[in-house]
Amino acid sequence: MEKTYNFKEVMSKEERLAPGHRMCAGCGGTVTVRAVLRALRPEDRAVVGNATGCLEVSSFMYPFTAYEDSYIHNAFENAGATLSGVETAYRVLKKKGKIDDTFKFITFGGDGGTYDIGFQSLSGAMERGHDMVYVCYDNGAYMNTGTQRSSATPQYADTTTTPAGKVSDGKVQVRKDLTAIMAQHHIPYAAQTTFTSNFKDLHTKAERAIYTPGAAFLNVMSPCPRGWGYDPSELMTICKLAVDTCYWPLYEVIDGKWVLNYVPKKKLPIEDFLRPQKRFKHLFKPDKEELLAQFQTEVDRQWEALRRRCEL
């Protein structure tokens, strides 16, 4: 479907997210937005949707919009439904001959707005099969309100509502596997990705998601230096460690077929991903080896399950 990935050519495409937004220095969220919008064909217009969250309050703070395309924010829990209304309007206005340009529909939500409060609205939009892409920029907590736990928060993470303390080791539960849940909606395309040095994985998936007719879901791990507690300049190192420890596997589900896009030559221990992040600091205190071992077991279990799925 898409051409061979030509890095230089892709990077020379017109920028669709303007600077001047108020996201924190080093934010992974806008790196995601730029990369996804870059996959649009230059001749196509887009309507960008957005759930309430860091991205929304920072990228459209009246009267400053950071978008080259039309943009709509409605509320926290309804990015899926809102864009499904826009997409339906597009179909009917085209049918009635009132517009003739090609528009694509992409909506962004953080993990809070996607895994939790916006879950129903997202599920509805995917089930109905609107020709749209829902992109979750997953940073694993409610960062906009100050790092509260979401169902995307990894186990044992220290957040402001699951603080590690004398009798607490941080978040109790493991993450919800949203990408798999979305794939089970029998949508034509669902994928999980993050930033790799040449951005091929993310770009290719965004392009597929946008240009596959029907509903598509992209889950993009988008690190948050503030919430995770690492130096902002280390964004790409953190992403690489997430992928090489198999904490965040890169895969896609195309028409129900599960495809693993990357298998690390040497699978690194999960400690390598956890150690640079302050939110896991308490796991490296004496007597916590058991928790680390348990974390590793869970990563291994999920990784093996994914591999089995992808072999079928």
């Binding site: 050519e9 600077p19 080093g26 934010c27 806008t30 870059r38 902002p232 300049s233 964004l235």
Partner: peptide, 30 residues
Amino acid sequence: CFPVCPDSSIPVKDGKRDDFDYDHCKGCGI
């Protein structure tokens, strides 16, 4: 360096980057 910038502050034209957009660069260092 271009795609990792969260602030679209590295202008690229005809496959070549230019100096930083210091009006917008937040200095994250990625």
